[in-house]
């Protein structure tokens, strides 16, 4: 055998090496990869700059008087010892309750009906398209709707009730879409298996569809809750208070709150950012309020992720 030739057709090992060794010339591929990486980098950079910026702004407040800031109320001077976000937190909490009590059950029920009961046809696809469009309607438009439906009819008085319902309506289409998608993803083999041993439609929905779709439904609904808590524009239209709200003796959980004027975290932030032009101290308060809101939203999203993995494990 000649030195360095293996395989019988006379090609030397060196020749084969030359043929099959990488020449590192996939320029298009590597530049595509770099481009994708840069895009990801830009997104992360923007996020980091944002978080650092609000942290720096809010740092004095967060480090010196966090407890008082959370329990405090809206004030006219940034130096006021009692300045804080308790009214904003209470308003946002109530909005969350409205979304949980109204949007979640109505939205999930609508999704179940659309996916499992409605005869699929032109009407259902028209409804599907309509709901998708509603989810894309700018939130200001929902604010206008809330203004006409719940404020004008109430002698022009803005109430927490109006704000809560408006945001519940705003996220309803999102809840329907995400729940419907989760339900659609249930494998038909599971449903057929259940029907095949004599399950009724209700049995199939109860024992197969809902348990399987639960992780997707929870994720979608909790993300829509984060959206509702972060919205400012519709609340401004239905008359949320941006400057000062008279402190009341009521507990934030008392239902009488519903007839009161109200504010919410995003509104408090907008108000303070505007006030900062007059009184620079409000910039720090706004920064601290943003950090608190971010923490709340991140906590909710983490719960969504944990619930998702819990239900995914449970369904095996």
């Amino acid at each position: 055998m000649a030195l360095g030739t293996i395989g019988g057709d006379g090609r030397t090992t060196a020749r084969v090496e030359q043929e099959i060794f990488s020449r590192g010339r996939d320029l298009k591929g590597s530049s595509f990869k770099t481009l994708m990486f840069s895009a990801l980098g830009v997104s992360i950079l923007v996020l980091v700059v944002l978080i650092v910026d609000v942290l720096v702004d809010g740092w004095p407040v967060l480090t010196t008087r966090l407890g008082g800031f959370i329990s405090g109320t809206l004030r006219s001077q940034s130096t006021d010892e009692l300045l804080g976000i308790s009214q904003g937190l209470a308003g946002s909490l109530w909005i969350a309750i409205f979304v949980i009590l109204l949007s979640f059950p109505i939205g999930i029920a609508s999704a179940i009906y659309l996916e499992e009961y409605a005869t699929q046809g032109r009407l259902t696809s028209a409804i599907d398209i309509a709901i998708r469009n509603l989810a894309g309607v700018p939130s200001v438009v929902y604010g206008l709707l809330g203004l006409f439906l719940f404020v004008t009819t109430n002698n022009g008085e803005s109430t927490l009730f109006a704000g809560g319902i408006t945001l519940a309506i705003l996220v309803l289409p999102i809840v329907v879409i995400t729940s419907a998608e989760a339900i659609r993803a249930v494998p038909s083999s599971l449903k057929q298996g259940a029907y095949g041993v004599g399950a009724t439609k209700w049995d199939v929905i109860r024992t197969q569809v809902l348990p399987f779709a639960a992780p997707g439904i929870f994720t979608g609904t909790l993300l829509s809750l984060s959206r509702a808590i972060g919205e400012a524009a519709p609340l401004i239209l239905v008359g949320a208070i941006t400057d000062r709200l008279a402190p009341r003796d009521r507990s934030i959980f008392s239902p009488e709150q519903l007839d009161d004027r109200f504010t919410a975290m995003p509104i408090v932030i907008v108000g303070w950012v505007q006030e900062a032009a007059r009184d620079v101290g409000f910039a720090a308060a706004a920064g601290a309020a943003i950090v608190v809101l971010l923490v709340v939203v991140i906590a909710m999203n983490s719960v969504a992720v944990m619930l998702r993995s819990y239900f995914e494990k449970k369904r095996g």
Binding site: S189, L190, Q192, G193, A194, Y195, G196, V197, G198, F212
Partner: peptide, 15 residues
């Protein structure tokens, strides 16, 4: 279907 049961092509155990 309670009297006439069915076994499918692909095993489909419930989770």
């Amino acid at each position: 279907r309670r009297r006439i049961g069915m076994v499918f092509q692909k095993p489909n155990p419930f989770p």
